[in-house]
């Protein structure tokens, strides 16, 4: 069983707002140098989903990452968690892509890598929030897909997936090979284990440039974008909060009741 997991490096989404600067001339949102790069949390859960299958029935797990100037320590995290191989699509040309150009390049990389039974992605990335790359890979490779999974089991060449829906979940069975995107309801991803570290230190990432996967640099990254960013701006947050006064918390709470009743809100 060959499992591919696609992971994206992003600026820590838990970082406070003040640690980002918006440059509205250049339309970029820049994290300060202090902000660490992390794996997109949903992608980390996709790695976890792959490793649970590996624990259960054995599998070779290959992590794919795409970008320019990737942080080597972060790219290795899936391997420290228990993945077997690491392939980086890394080149200046891959920078600033959109879902379309990213999915296309990943699909070509996955094809070049050879055989696959299951391709896992996070449901969306916490930075651009598009949630399209998994669907794109499925399309480019001609595979069926299931999105927003919270549980994946492999039974007789099929994946049985619990797909999160707004009022519960549905159980979906998909023939492999297939693409599945993973949601946070899957549960906590494991921490890198000490026992993996020696083996992981031996894993050297394979690095491919656009020419290695047979794509022209002009159709990846920024140049391959189909969706054009016109403007980045801060949302207008209105709200002048009336903070309840009082000597004690109880008094403040009573004042809240009085205020809300007077304003005919409650």
């Amino acid at each position: 069983m060959n499992i591919i997991v696609c992971v994206k490096q992003i600026a820590d989404p838990e970082a406070p707002e003040e640690s980002f600067t918006l440059d509205s001339e250049k339309n970029v949102f820049i994290p300060s140098a202090k902000i660490t790069k992390v794996l997109n949390p949903f992608d980390e859960q996709a790695v976890e989903a792959a490793l649970r299958i590996k624990d259960q029935s054995g599998a070779k797990v290959t992590a794919f990452s795409l970008g320019a100037g990737l942080d080597r320590a972060v790219t290795k995290k899936p391997v420290f968690m228990g993945a077997d191989e690491l392939i980086l699509l890394e080149d200046e040309a891959f920078a600033d892509g959109d879902s379309w150009s990213t999915a296309r390049a990943l699909a070509e990389g996955i094809k070049k890598n050879g055989s696959y039974d299951l391709i896992l992605c996070g449901r969306q990335a916490a930075d651009w929030n598009a949630g399209q790359v998994g669907l794109g890979i499925a399309n480019f490779l001609g595979l069926p897909y299931v999105t927003v999974a919270k549980k994946i089991e492999i039974i007789d060449g099929k994946a049985r997936v619990e797909r999160v829906t707004s009022n519960g979940h549905e159980v979906v069975e998909v023939q492999l090979p297939a693409v599945i995107t993973v949601s946070n309801e899957l549960g906590q991803a494991r921490y890198p284990a000490i026992k993996n570290i020696r083996a992981a230190n031996k894993v050297q990432p394979v690095v491919w440039k656009p020419s290695d996967i047979g794509i022209d640099p002009s159709s990846v990254g920024k140049n391959g974008r189909r969706l054009h960013l016109l403007k980045l701006f801060k949302p207008v947050i209105q709200g002048t909060c009336e903070i309840m006064e009082g000597e004690s918390t109880e008094e403040m709470a009573e004042n809240l009741a009085l205020t809300l009743r007077r304003a005919k809100i409650l």
Partner: peptide, 15 residues
């Protein structure tokens, strides 16, 4: 659409 966890808004288009 909101991006970066809704810290910023992004305006897009396509041809």
């Amino acid at each position: 659409k909101p991006v970066y966890g809704a810290l910023v808004m992004a305006k897009f288009s396509t041809d």
